[in-house]
Nucleic acid binder design. Structure first.
Lengths: 225, 225
DNA sequence: CCAAAAGTGTTCCGTCTACACCCATGG
DNA sequence: CCATGGGTGTAGACGGAACACTTTTGG
């Protein structure tokens, strides 16, 4: 079915990470300037090569951990990119991975060390190679999945107010939605539980804190926002 | 951001094709027995290595053309597979591609030459390596997209009856649906046009033939079944 | 006392679903 | 003349969208 190995060429295989975070009511992506050739100085996603003793997913996890200091992040493969000249130096196939993190969890020292910063999704500059396409595709996927997968909670602390949840939702979709309708939908979802705790930072009156019941999701395994 | 090339390993990069067709009221996949080691004799998808002078998409198109003799097929990337030992011989990263073809268009001689055959999607045997995962993922994608992308027409001739269209739809989703409701939805879709032609093969009375207006889709670029 | 965010229901409209019978024709 | 697949409408249920005012309290 497939021809023999020896007749064929090998290529470098890399992963590139689109790391989304939510802060100041905006959806943001981690971007940095390349510190190596080719493309030194250009804005770029953070990535790395896939090692011989790790799978693609493991490589993406390792690279994300290097970058953020965090483990067990929400992470999904976006797509493989393999245009012939996507890397000007060598033939490199890159697998794009999308990750969602709670900005408050990040290790600020590591971000400085890696010279990356949070950039609002609608202020993304021209990026190295095909990285703009990667971000675009990741964002499209995110928008498609937000209503049927509980991914939104990865962008928030464990306890959150409904106003925060709605802000994230609006930031991802890029449109404002009705508060009463949104809350009606939340109430219809068993997995989003009201706690007895009150958040006093965001308002004078105080807002109820909610949490996502992950165990209930693992049992039901269907989610609807 | 990324380390230097020389410190890293290269891998073989391949494409594997999940080719769907529709025949005898069933959704089918092209499968064959591997004619090479490792895995000789095991059921497998058809695939090939990515050459140094072609992109991933080009490689998938070339491999599909080798297999079917057809060009410009509907084709979408499914995902990249990169478990360490997914190929027992060498480190091989494989990008799975899903294609949809009209079974009547195929070149039967080529299929025999490649020793592949059409297998019903719910009778798929255990396949080589991670190929069962590839098929499963492709099928999941197909089901998700069928209502928002005009992909179903790729499984039918240019002219088709509504009963045929409904059969394909049911075969993909794996459930029977109501004829009147289905036809109501079709009528609500401008891009599916009734022609003056009558098909006399499928029934004594004869059934109106319809076609999909591709140009209208390219202008509107939103599709709803 | 007032600014700022939290919280709360109802009505309307369009969409989806369930459901059964007549039609045309070739053999 | 009858078996086979083609073709058609309506009523009820349901879900999504629009819409505005009251509450609480820190400063």
């Amino acid at each position: 079915m497939t021809a023999f190995y020896a007749e064929h060429n090998k290529a470098f295989v890399a992963v590139d990470c689109i790391v989304f975070g939510f802060d100041e009511k905006k959806l943001k992506v981690l971007l940095g300037k390349r510190r190596m050739d080719p493309g030194r100085g250009e804005w770029s996603l953070y990535g790395g090569f896939v090692d011989e003793n790790e799978s693609l997913d493991e490589a993406a996890n390792r690279v994300l951990n290097e970058l953020t200091g965090l483990k067990h992040l929400y992470m999904k493969q976006v797509a493989a990119f393999g245009a012939i000249d996507r890397d000007p130096g060598e033939r490199v196939i890159s697998i794009a991975y999308c990750a969602l993190i709670n900005v408050k969890d990040y290790n600020e020292r590591l971000l400085k060390e890696h010279e990356v910063e949070w950039v609002e999704v609608d202020k993304i500059p021209t990026l190295y190679s095909d990285h703009n396409m990667m971000v675009k595709k990741a964002l499209t996927l995110l928008r498609k999945r937000i209503n049927s997968e509980p991914l939104i909670f990865n962008l928030l602390p464990k306890l959150f107010t409904l106003t925060q949840l709605q802000s994230v939702y609006e930031a991802i979709l890029g449109e404002v939605i009705d508060k009463r309708n949104f809350r009606k939908r939340i109430k219809a979802n068993d997995m989003i539980e009201k706690t007895e705790l009150i958040d006093k930072y965001s308002s004078k009156r105080g807002a109820a804190l909610y949490r996502f019941n992950k165990k209930m999701y693992q049992e039901e395994s269907s989610f609807k926002l």
